[in-house]
């Protein structure tokens, strides 16, 4: 690389850095662990409702540059659900019971939201900052009911695009800074793959002469009505060292999905309380 090229690149880099310092920006990563409740009805596995507990792990990144908000969120959930009225649980020695009690549900996904603040010139100063944008959401689930014969599991793979709505408000309570934010994601359409009506797996994995693409279906609300809402309370408190602050997040998350693919229906609702910490928090405010 020539001297001129190197100097030009360094100069350009410097410009970018300087420019970067001239905008308002916030960025952090977060890790959250949660516990909550889940209720679900998966017609392929059972015609009745199962309820239980749900655990979650979230990893994500938030970035704000001026009026642009970017969030990335990777999540994993594991749930154990039961038929609350299973009369077979009344046997004297539960160890003799050959039927495993519940449905084991695994769920993972990736969510990308890009939003822009809106109405900020029209709102009073005390009003929350509102942002609106688009979202990409990959949501995959595997639900296992071990005792079932030939229908022991249900899978779904949802590739969705939709709207993202954000609200943000800062409150200071003595030395504690509280950032309240809410993120709502609503898919508008998607490409879905899920268990067939009478076969756990796609036909292409079982029989010859079938197309792999038969497993996928394009749809909107008629196929799947799903949303996710996360209410965040970020508490920032001063650390023992000077200029060191710690931010803890408490999140209340709701997920709801009503998936109707291949004449099966999976309805799932979760409520999860999560706790975590915001890492590498940085704020540059242009004055």
């Amino acid at each position: 690389m020539g001297k001129k090229t190197t100097l030009t690149l360094l100069f350009l880099g410097l410009l970018i850095l300087v420019n970067g310092q001239n905008v308002d920006s916030v960025s952090y990563t977060f890790r959250l662990n949660g516990l909550g409740t889940i209720s679900q009805k998966i017609s392929f596995l059972s015609p009745i409702k199962y309820t239980g507990v749900n655990t979650s792990y979230d990893w994500g990144r938030f970035r704000q540059i001026n009026n642009k908000f970017l969030t990335k969120n990777l999540y994993f959930n594991f749930a154990l659900t039961f038929n609350g009225n299973d009369q077979n649980t009344n046997i004297e020695n539960p160890e003799e019971r050959p039927i495993p009690l519940g449905i084991y549900s695994f769920n993972y996904g990736y969510l990308f939201n890009k939003r822009y603040s809106i109405l900020h010139n029209h709102l009073p100063k005390k009003a929350p900052l509102i942002s609106l944008g688009w979202s990409y959401w990959l949501d995959a689930g595997l639900d296992i009911k071990p005792f079932n014969v030939n229908n022991p599991f249900y899978y779904n793979l949802n590739n969705m695009a939709g709207l993202s709505l954000g609200l943000k408000k800062r409150v200071n309570i003595k030395k504690v800074q509280l950032d309240i934010s809410n993120e709502f994601t609503l898919p508008l359409f998607g490409i879905y793959a899920a268990t067939r009506y009478s076969s756990s797996l796609p036909y292409s994995t079982i029989v010859d002469d079938t197309s792999f693409w038969d497993a996928f279906q394009i749809g909107s609300f008629q196929t799947n009505f799903q949303f996710r809402n996360n209410l965040n309370l970020d508490f920032t408190i001063p650390g023992k060292k000077k200029n060191v602050k710690h931010t803890f997040r408490f999140q209340y998350g709701i997920n709801y999905a009503n998936l109707r693919v291949n004449n099966n229906q999976k309805i799932q609702a979760t409520h999860i309380f999560k706790l975590g910490y915001l890492f590498n928090s940085s704020r540059y405010v242009h004055k």
Binding site: S39, I48, N83, I254, Y256, A269, H271
Partner: peptide, 13 residues
Amino acid sequence: VFITAGCVKEDLS
């Protein structure tokens, strides 16, 4: 949003 999330409709189970 919180209210509509509710849970799966009650049934005979």
